[in-house]
Simulated assay, not measured.
Amino acid sequence: MTTVSRKKLVVAINPSASFGASRHVGPAVVQTLRAMGHEVTSLTEPDFEQLLASARAALKKHPDALVMVGGDGMVNLGTNLVAGTRVPLAIIPSGTGNDMARALGIPFDNTEAAIASLNAALAVGPRTIDAGRISWTDPVTGEAGERWFACALSAGFDAIVNERANNMEHPKGPSRYIIAMLAELVKLKPLSYRLTIDGTVLDSKAVLVAIGNGVSLGGGMKITPDAKLDDGLLDVLVVQPLSRTAFLRIFPRVFKGTHVTDPRVQITRAKKVRIEAEGIAAYGDGERIALLPIDVEVVPGALRVLSPLP
């Protein structure tokens, strides 16, 4: 085991994990980190609103890391708490997709290995990566909003599938996203988009629009397989209109990232993107953000993370 000096850690546990197979993960993480000699503040709240308040209070004490126990939704919460600060974000994955953990090389199917990875990363220190900043204006209230995302943003058929998947109780795991996709596929139709990519305006029909800072979404679907977390750019994926049959032919290739060789799949690297379409909600790291239009920009070096990858 790596020898690490005593660290002050804030561990935030997913409130939705009070029941089910992952309910033991949070307490086990806290117990193990304390046994390793770390000073651990454990945050276990009944809902996300109270967890957010508790985490903000705990961060005022300048811990050595904020450890999120859960899936990509918890990663998104943690990102919005520490982006632009000196506090590193750490992840013990126990969610459905765990795409940010995959991007950072954190073991996502073995809690003990993930804790050992965290302990080793504490010894080395954090790395700095980019984050995406989303801004919008509420069409009803006129109020401005802003949120961060760490791994991926979806704003097309993928967002519609995400919405269905989030409302499903079963099954657990990445298969839930696939089942939701198949259920929505019967209603698949192109949407009219206006995309402004680094100042260039593009009006087009598309079935899928997504932005990757990391490689995957939906539990390992490599939508932007060549994306890098620290290159100062976002990978913008646009899939042109497809029939259901064509979609089903291309879809299996997304798990290997080979879908990008299809001429109807386009990826552009950019620093700023505006996405406009009627009646579509944007999702960041699997969490509902806002209805389009939204503006997205990469903020280089906005996030410090604890990761086994350099």
Rank of each mutant, 00 (worst) to 15 (best):
T261L: 13
A12I: 08
V215D: 01
V30K: 05
D198W: 05
L292H: 03
P174R: 05
L104P: 03
S94V: 02
V296N: 06
R34P: 04
S154D: 12
L77K: 06
V265K: 07
M168I: 03
G95L: 09
D295Q: 11
S54V: 01
A227H: 02
S42N: 08
T41Q: 14
V265N: 09
L81C: 09
G286L: 06
V124I: 14
G199Y: 09
H62G: 00
A116D: 14
V207Q: 12
G279I: 00
V273A: 05
R304Y: 06
A12G: 10
G284Q: 08
D230M: 00
P171M: 08
E39H: 12
G125N: 03
T200V: 15
V11Y: 05
P46N: 09
V201P: 01
G279C: 01
N162G: 15
L185V: 03
V239K: 02
S135L: 00
N166F: 02
G214H: 06
R249W: 11
R102N: 12
P174M: 08
M168F: 10
A28F: 12
V299M: 13
V238N: 01
R133N: 12
E146S: 15
V75G: 03
R274S: 15
V30Q: 04
G70K: 07
S216L: 06
E112G: 11
D109L: 00
D138P: 03
S117G: 07
R249Y: 11
P46Q: 09
M181K: 00
L217P: 00
M100C: 09
L229Y: 00
M100H: 13
A277Y: 03
D285C: 04
K222Q: 14
R244E: 11
L292T: 07
G105T: 09
F108V: 01
K272Q: 14
L33E: 07
M168H: 06
V25S: 06
G257A: 11
E49C: 03
L191M: 13
K61G: 00
R164H: 13
E287Q: 11
T2G: 00
E278L: 10
V239R: 04
Q50D: 12
K256W: 08
G156C: 08
I134H: 01
L89N: 03
R34D: 09
E287M: 07
V75C: 09
G301K: 07
N80E: 13
G232R: 07
G73S: 08
P308I: 07
I160G: 00
I13H: 06
A53F: 04
K7P: 03
T196C: 13
G214S: 10
